[in-house]
Simulated scan of single mutants.
Amino acid sequence: MTGSRSAIITGGFGQIGDAIATELLESGLVDQIWCLDSRVPDVGTDPRVRYIQVDLSGEQEMEQVRAQLPDRICMLINAVGGERRPSVAAVQDKSWPPSAVWDDITVLNMGLPYRVTERLHDRIEDGGTICNISSIAAGMPWVVSPAYGAAKAALEHWGKSLAVVLAPRGIRVNAVRPGFVWSRQWAEVSRQEFDEVVRDRVPLAQVSTGERVSKEQTPGDIAKVVAFLCSSAAKHLTGQTLDVDGGAALARAPR
């Protein structure tokens, strides 16, 4: 597609990645998207979105995929992250996960975004954007999964350093911190507990046509902020992190 604007989304098979793809396309910021993920796609079939199942940690696999990607991209969105279910080893004490679990979580949430970005940064156009999906866990104690919080904090720190490195090329690097978004991982816990967490820990009321509505954040809410950060409206924003959490990080440590 001559003159097309292309984006790459890592972790693009998940709900947040899929919502970001939809928002970027519908807002006209890009014309085509490549989604990279190790999971089996369970999202839409928009012809403008190409889904590539790949082990992002595999050197040979990534080299093969690199050959399939466009030579020039305007956006790289790192939405890969979370925690493997089931974990690579049994966790008896959440405060002290086995080293194998700690390493797996930190690689997934910090190592993979770095590895993909290191391989593709030379394809990002001058004036392009990178946006990393972090978590409110990065900014507060997260005792139910200290490896996750630590990895997201590292992701944000690296993002700030990367913003300085790429600033001479006009490439902006920012991050978004989702709060409580219903996800596969929450589904493995319970909807009731999720609703209780949102009710108790999200202080900002949501009102529509005069009525109070759900306070949970949706993948679409996250996607809209990502699209803003990748648009010309945010042309002077780099090295920044935006919380999309309904004020949860302001009230108290959620975990």
Score class of each variant (00 low, 15 high):
A248H: 05
W34M: 03
G28V: 07
I73L: 05
S6Q: 14
W142I: 07
V189G: 03
P178K: 09
P41T: 04
T241K: 00
M75R: 07
V116K: 02
T22M: 04
R172F: 07
G11T: 02
F194V: 06
G28E: 00
P98V: 06
S214H: 09
V225A: 08
L237W: 15
G139Y: 06
T241P: 00
R50E: 12
D55M: 00
R5W: 08
N132A: 13
S6C: 14
V189Q: 06
R169E: 05
Q192G: 13
D103K: 11
Y148N: 06
Q185I: 15
E125P: 08
G247C: 08
A151V: 14
Q192I: 12
V164R: 13
M110D: 10
M1N: 13
G81D: 01
I171P: 00
V49N: 02
A227W: 02
E23K: 09
R201S: 07
E83M: 13
Q64F: 04
D103I: 09
K215Q: 15
S87F: 10
R85C: 04
D31N: 06
Q60W: 14
T106D: 04
E83T: 15
V107K: 12
E193S: 10
E211F: 14
A187V: 10
G210T: 10
G111H: 02
A248F: 12
